[in-house]
Computed example of a mutant assay.
Amino acid sequence: MRLRAGPRNSITDVSGVLVGHADDGRLASGVTAIVFEQPTVASVDVRGGGPGTRETDLLLPERTVQAIDAICLSGGSAFGLDAASGVMAALAEAGRGFQVGSARVPIVPAAILFDLLNGGDKEWGRFPPYRDLGHTAASAASHDFALGSVGAGLGARTANLKGGLGSASSAVEELGVTVGALAVVNALGSATVGDGRHFWAAPFELESEFGGIGPAADVSQDAWFPASKPMAGGHTTIAMVATDAALTKTEARSLAVMAQNGLARALVPCHTPLDGDVVFAAATGHAELSGERVTALTWLGHIAALTLSRAVARGVYEAAGTTPGAQPSWKGLFGS
């Protein structure tokens, strides 16, 4: 089985998926909205000790709601959960939502990362700005969007380098589907091997998407233990994988579980008690998955993990240290 990146090499290569950002440089924080053109089957897998989420219980396979309208990813720690209300407002204005009698309720699960101590001005007064940022992000959703220090990734950090938002896609001819991933990398761990320029995800890179420098020739034990300053609840990588395959909610849950392996292959360490790692999975249903079902689902989950690893590396590769007190960026240290 051979993979190639889609035409945009982003999650919007999956039919029916749009992405929008809103951020504030002074705040050093922002919001990213993943909006589905039609209600979409989705589920989630939550790991690590410090997650911050909204509406994730309804994504369990046994819950009544079978499709969602959007996913909201935000900075701001628990304050950022307000961003989903802004995304809901934008969708409500467009007439979207789960219908209950004459009422429509947009379904927008969300996850947040901690960026309150990244040097930005968080003195916002009585109400945090995330609801307005969420509305702006959802209203801006399109097929084309920026990577790096944008949206929810604006103030993201890792153990040693500026974090950021990355995306990638994989066209899978043997299965007849496309897989995409989006990751906001704000990890306790490191995306690179030690203090060098090589990414842990290098073996999975396609088309020199994060520098094309290949894997590190030698990996010492020191690289397994990157220098960092653990802070309870202060780290998190929030992500989403999507496919145009038609899946059930139970199958989407399995996809999210397998996709979490992509974080573990791209970040060292990962899923710690200090991270709140969350991976959503969505299936827009525009294509039929080819082949024997269990085998095809196994390969689909494996490819989702590989694609998510690439998205993590791209998030750090594309990041820029433009906010107050930002860490050095990969490109700032090693060039483009």
Rank of each mutant, 00 (worst) to 15 (best):
G194K: 05
A232R: 15
H198E: 14
F199Q: 08
F204G: 02
P226I: 00
P203H: 02
A223M: 02
Q221G: 14
I213F: 11
G234Y: 06
G211Q: 09
D218H: 12
A223C: 11
A201F: 02
R197L: 11
W224C: 12
P215D: 01
F204P: 04
G234P: 05
V219W: 00
G211S: 08
R197G: 13
A202S: 14
F204V: 06
S208L: 10
W200Q: 00
G233W: 04
R197H: 14
T192M: 09
W200R: 00
T192K: 07
K229T: 15
G212M: 13
W200F: 01
A191Q: 06
D195M: 07
G234W: 03
V193K: 01
D195K: 09
A223E: 04
G234I: 05
S208E: 15
W200I: 02
P226W: 00
S220A: 11
S220R: 01
A202Q: 08
G234T: 06
G234E: 05
R197M: 14
G196P: 12
T192D: 10
W224A: 15
L206G: 04
D222S: 13
D222C: 05
E207T: 11
D218K: 07
V219Q: 05
V219D: 03
A232T: 15
R197A: 15
P203T: 08
P226N: 02
L206Y: 07
A223G: 04
G234A: 07
A223R: 01
T192W: 06
D218M: 08
P203C: 06
S228E: 00
S220E: 09
S208V: 08
A232L: 15
A223V: 01
E205C: 08
